[in-house]
């Protein structure tokens, strides 16, 4: 039983990180219908800022907000430079643009920083663990779970009560009507990118605090997981993204924990099969976006 509880805590920590990542993707998708595959590079940028701060001797408590700010600025810049010119183009154009941005950034990191992983200095406390009864929980797990909860509450309040948040929800539902009501498209889209950068920055801190290093291709895995989680939850739906993130985290951890030894090699395909299975029964995701006008024939 202890073992099960322990693995459940692991699943919450991983699922929470996936939820933050998926939310970042969903935030942008819901306003402009773009899956931003360069989302992972925002994490890499935040990671490099953590690295640079570590080298410069900046205390961790200060380098975290700096890293998150960098991700926000990078996200807004990305929208202004790369995505605004193609905003009215087809979905495929925007998708290819996001791949291009991602690859350009990766090659820039490889050539101007280093092709090799760079160490990120982390406070010792993040490697320690705390005992609760029979459970041993790593401090970075507790941090991940707590951060996820705080972020979800913050986002919920922001989307419900803040002017930009309300505008974003309106735009997600029907952009044309929202604009007729006097909502500025640029503000809403820039706001969505800033928020997704914020989420990427927070997720990057959690991600890097586990691996203690940052490399040019670091963003690939998280954005892939986020994409799966966002599809699983229902593309464009924020609540769905959270649900999808947690479900993916639970599937991965429980499979790693309880799949028999001989089957472990097939863990990832089995996890994806389970995702497909969920989608067979709920083709639009766990909590579909109300604005999703997917025609099924």
């Amino acid at each position: 039983m202890d073992l099960f509880l322990q693995q459940t805590v692991n699943a919450f920590a991983l699922g929470g990180t996936y939820a933050l990542l998926a939310l970042g993707l969903a935030m942008v998708f819901s306003t402009m219908g773009l899956i931003n595959f360069a989302h992972g590079e925002l994490m890499t940028i935040a990671g490099y800022i953590l690295m640079a701060c570590g080298l410069a001797g900046v205390p961790f408590a200060l380098s975290v907000p700096l890293a998150i700010c960098a991700a926000v600025i990078a996200a807004v810049a990305m929208e202004r430079i790369a995505f605004r010119p193609v905003r009215n183009a087809s979905g495929a154009t925007m998708l290819v643009t996001s791949f291009a941005v991602s690859m350009i950034l990766q090659v820039l990191f490889q050539n101007f920083i280093s092709a090799r992983s760079q160490a990120v200095l982390l406070p010792q406390v993040l490697s320690e663990s705390v005992r609760f009864g029979g459970l041993v929980i790593g401090v970075n797990k507790i941090a991940a779970i707590a951060t996820t909860i705080v972020m979800l509450i913050f986002l919920d309040r922001f989307m419900k009560h803040h002017r930009v948040g309300i505008a974003m929800r309106a735009a997600a539902e029907d952009f044309s009507v929202a604009r007729l009501m006097g909502i500025r498209a640029n503000t809403v889209i820039a706001g969505a990118f800033a928020l997704s950068g914020f989420l990427a920055g927070v997720a990057a801190v959690l991600w890097v605090s586990q691996r203690a290093s940052v490399d040019p291709l670091m963003g690939f895995t998280p954005v892939l997981k986020a994409f799966i989680a966002a599809i699983l939850g229902g593309l464009g739906s924020l609540r769905g993204a959270v649900a999808g993130g947690f479900l993916l985290g639970f599937i991965e951890i429980y499979l790693a924990a309880y799949l028999p030894q001989g089957m472990q090699e097939f863990r990832d395909p089995i996890a994806l099969c389970l995702v497909v299975l969920v989608l067979i029964f709920r083709p639009n995701g766990l909590i579909p976006s109300p604005a999703l006008k997917a025609e099924k024939v």
Binding site: T221, E252, Q264, R267
Partner: peptide, 22 residues
């Protein structure tokens, strides 16, 4: 005493760590 497999690029090793700790 046993073995475990992982995927290259796997971010989370907590499930494996929990099993070994047990």
């Amino acid at each position: 005493l046993g073995q475990d497999t992982h995927t290259i690029g796997q971010q989370d090793f907590s499930a494996i760590a929990t099993r070994i700790a047990a």
